[in-house]
Simulated assay, not measured.
Amino acid sequence: MATYVWDYLPEYENEREEILGAVDKVFSSGRLVLGESVRGFEEEFAAYHGAGHCVSVDNGTNAIKLALQALGVGPGDEVITVSNTAAPTVVAIDATGATPVFVDVRADDHLMDVEQVASAVTGRTRCLLPVHLYGQCADLAPLRDLADRHGLVLLEDCAQAHGARQNGRPAGITGDAAAFSFYPTKVLGAYGDGGAVLTSRKGVAEDLRRLRYYGMEKTYYTVQTPAHNSRLDEVQAEILRRKLTRLDTYVADRREVARRYAEGLGDTDLLLPRVNPGNDHVYYVYVVRHPRRDDIIERLKAYDIHLNISYPWPVHTMTGFARYGYSEGSLPVTERLAGEIFSLPMYPSLPAGLQDKVIVAVREVLATLSPRHAPALSRLPSVRDPS
Rank of each mutant, 00 (worst) to 15 (best):
T85M: 12
T199S: 07
S56R: 00
F182G: 01
T96L: 06
E217W: 11
E156F: 00
P371A: 11
R372W: 11
D104T: 03
A2I: 10
P100C: 03
L20I: 13
A237L: 04
L350M: 11
G74L: 08
G325E: 07
Y220I: 13
G195S: 00
P10H: 01
C158E: 02
K301R: 15
E17L: 12
V197M: 01
L143S: 07
V204G: 02
K357A: 14
V38T: 05
G168Q: 13
Y191C: 08
V251P: 02
L34I: 08
D108T: 09
L244S: 03
A177L: 11
L71W: 02
L271D: 14
E42S: 06
A179Q: 06
R241W: 05
Y8P: 11
A367S: 14
P10T: 03
R16P: 05
D139Y: 05
D269C: 09
R242E: 05
L32N: 07
L240A: 07
M318C: 12
P332N: 09
H110P: 09
D280S: 09
V362L: 07
S327G: 13
S56D: 02
G123P: 12
A374N: 01
S378C: 10
L129E: 04
N279Q: 07
R260W: 04
I296Y: 08
R169I: 12
I173V: 15
A107F: 14
T125K: 10
C137S: 12
L271Q: 15
G266I: 08
D267I: 06
P184T: 00
L369Y: 03
K186L: 11
T317Q: 14
D7H: 11
Y324A: 02
V360A: 10
L152D: 07
N229T: 13
L300Y: 13
G21D: 05
V57C: 07
N308W: 15
R106I: 08
G195H: 00
H316E: 07
T268L: 13
T245G: 00
H373P: 06
T319G: 13
E13K: 15
L240E: 04
T222N: 13
A22F: 06
A190T: 04
L307N: 08
L68W: 01
S119T: 15
T85L: 12
K301P: 10
I296C: 10
P351H: 09
R274V: 14
T3K: 03
D295C: 08
E42Y: 01
L188Q: 03
Y324K: 12
K25Q: 11
N14Q: 15
E78I: 06
A95C: 03
E43A: 11
G151Y: 02
F45L: 08
S28T: 06
D24Q: 14
S181P: 06
Y250I: 11
P345D: 03
G21M: 06
A374E: 14
D145T: 15
A120Y: 08
